[in-house]
Structures are given as structure tokens and as C-alpha cells.
Nucleic acid binder design. Structure first.
Lengths: 179, 179
DNA sequence: CCGGTATATGCAACAGGTTGCATATGGCAC
DNA sequence: GTGCCATATGCAACCTGTTGCATATACCGG
């Protein structure tokens, strides 16, 4: 049910439509919890049914009505509760690239080098993005307050993770003798 | 379908029962691809049905028969094919801890510090385990051949990742002012 | 004016993973 | 001697996430 709480967390910043959330899940909380628009619309319906969020329907000519959601008091309570009590399990690791690497041979060496190179690029891109966000919005971490301190820590985790991934990929390419 | 290929990869090292695989997925390939015993038994049945693995039934008194599986030639082909052609998508990131951190407040600061501490411990434990394996079985990476080189790279990735997680957790605890 | 992208929401089917339970025996510790 | 753990396999129900499709308009570029 974490998606439900991730959505409620996103709604802490104010009223949002499903469409807004689907976009936001690509740029902020989405760095740490991904969800497609179908999942989001389904979850919004369930949260709404359970009284944790409220919908504000905005009629639009031509297009479907816009449905803007906000947290109810019950939603705030449920979210606070979850943050306090949720168990601390490490998410399961599943990465196809490593399964493929376990099969390394002269027959697939070139393809695996390409795969590692692509991985390196994606780590580098992500890292650059996170660092840009940090420099623009979190350049003075000591001055942050409340929730923003937690968001900063999540961002920092992303930076550490991407740096590690990138430095691994570079070491791997050197080891594999890629030019 | 990656689980299918992960299982076939595990069978490269020789004949295994479902039970063996469930255990092995806790110590080797399992560092990079997790699966419960139910998933494994189900997958073995499907792979068997598709002719990619073969079963060798060993009757046992009292206990259920032991069913030992090995890769068929078709299985080898399918696996090699998959390693060559599989797309290189980054696995979706989903970690509840960061969703919780987005909700940081004075009301839950203590609980989140505890959660980060636990995370630090689990990273440290994992890191120690990986380094022990590296020192015992991969102390001379330049001399490794074939598949073992890929396994070494996966292990190296694990080491990088755990180091990053640990150093993040320590920085986070300092930032949160945990003693 | 035609196609692509953005806005905005949604259904249905499927694939993958989790949880709970069931069976059956042997060995070890308290 | 009772309970717990390891061995060894499996079903059924459920939850979560993915994929493909559908609708309807407006704006922008070529």
C-alpha cells in the first residue's frame, strides 16, 4: 500500500489532479517511488472511497472534468501514523544487468559492454540532474526546516547512489577492456 | 520473465533442486535477483513444460521425491539469446524509507533516525559479507576467466552500492543530529 | 491540413510477486 | 517429550505493477 502513502505525501504540497501527480512522480518523489498514471488514477479512487482524500470536480467544456484531490484530516492522520509505524524493510534488489553479467562470455562480451556503457550514461545523467536540483534548491542544507530536511536527505541518497553506480560502471568498463 | 533466466543462470553451475535454488538465491545470484521458494517452484514447472530444463526425480522414503533440474540444450540456447538481446532498462526505484523521509517532522524525527540507523547497519552487514566473498574468492580479479569475470563485476557493483548506502546513512544521521 | 504532442481520465487483461497455509519426516535442544 | 528448525514441495488467494487500448480537445510545426 506504499503507493497510497506516496500519493498522500505528494498531496502535502497542495491540491493535485491525477495528471499532475503522474508528472510529479517523474521529477521529485518519483525519483524514489515510481508509478504510472494508471496506478495513480486507481489509487486516487481507492483513497477517495476510504475518505483519506477529497475530490474537487472542475467542469471543463470539451475535455473530461478535471478532478483535483486534497488530503482530508483522516488522510493526514493515516499518513502520520504510517510514517511512525511502518516497518523498515530494505526493498528487494532486482537488476537484469547483473543476471546478464553472470553469463559473461566471449560471445556476448560486446553486448554487455554496450549495456554497461548505457548504464554509465544513465547514472551520469541522473547524477547531473540531482546535483543541479541540489545546487538550485538545497545549497544551504543547514538552513532547511521540517519536511524540506527530509527531502534533502532523499536527494542526497540519490546522489550517493548514482555516484556509486557511475563509478562502478567505469571500473567495470576498464576491467572489461572497453576502449 | 527475468526470473526464468535467473534460474537458468543458476543452473549453469550444475543440477539443482528447487530447494537448493531457493537457498542459493539467498547467497549469490540472490544478491542481485531475489525470489521466494514459491516463485521458484512455479517457474521450474513452467521452464520444464517449455523444455528449457529437464527434471531428474529422485525417490525418497518418507519425504516427497526430490526433483533435480538441469539445463537442456534448448535452455542454453534460450539463455544465450536472452543475454545478447535483452534490453537494458534500469529497474524502477521504490524505497519506502524515502517516502517516509519526505514526511520528516519533529513528531517522527526519532522514529526516522531509528530507521536510518537500521538501514546503516544493514548496509554495513551486506558490505562486510561482500568484501569477505571478494577477499576469499576474487582476490585476483585479473586472473579470472569467462563467467567468473562477470560474477566478479556483479559483486563489485554490490560493494559500491553498499558503500554508497552506508556513507549516505552516516551523513544523514549526522545531519539529523543523531548521537 | 496532417501529424505529433500535451492535456486529462479511464477500463481490462495480464504478468509478477507476496502471504498464508499444508504436508511429511528427522534431528537437536531445553 | 515438546517445540523448533531443516529438508522438500506445493496450492490458492491476493496485491501490485505493466501493457494496450480508448476517449476528446487544443495547439504547434511543417
Amino acid at each position: 500500500m506504499s503507493l497510497h502513502y506516496a500519493i498522500m505525501t505528494a498531496l502535502l504540497d497542495g491540491e493535485r489532479t491525477g495528471y499532475d501527480l503522474a508528472k510529479q512522480f517523474d521529477v521529485s518523489l518519483g525519483f524514489f517511488w515510481t508509478a504510472s498514471h494508471q496506478q495513480i488514477y486507481r489509487a486516487l479512487k481507492e483513497l477517495s472511497r476510504d475518505g483519506l482524500i477529497e475530490v474537487n470536480e472542475i467542469a471543463q467544456a470539451g475535455k473530461p472534468d478535471k478532478r483535483s484531490y486534497r488530503l482530508t484530516d483522516a488522510g493526514h492522520d493515516a499518513l502520520n501514523d504510517w510514517v511512525l509505524k511502518e516497518g523498515n524493510r530494505t526493498p528487494p534488489q532486482r537488476d537484469e544487468l547483473f543476471v546478464r553479467l553472470y553469463n559473461l562470455s566471449s560471445a556476448n562480451r560486446a553486448e554487455l559492454i554496450t549495456a554497461v556503457k548505457e548504464r554509465a550514461t544513465s547514472h551520469a545523467d541522473r547524477l547531473a540532474l540531482y546535483e543541479r536540483i541540489r545546487d538550485r534548491h538545497y545549497s544551504e542544507p543547514a538552513r532547511l526546516r521540517g519536511r524540506r530536511r527530509g527531502v534533502y536527505l532523499a536527494l542526497l541518497a540519490g546522489i550517493h547512489k548514482e555516484q556509486a553506480g557511475l563509478s562502478w560502471a567505469e571500473a567495470a568498463l576498464a576491467y572489461l577492456g572497453a576502449r
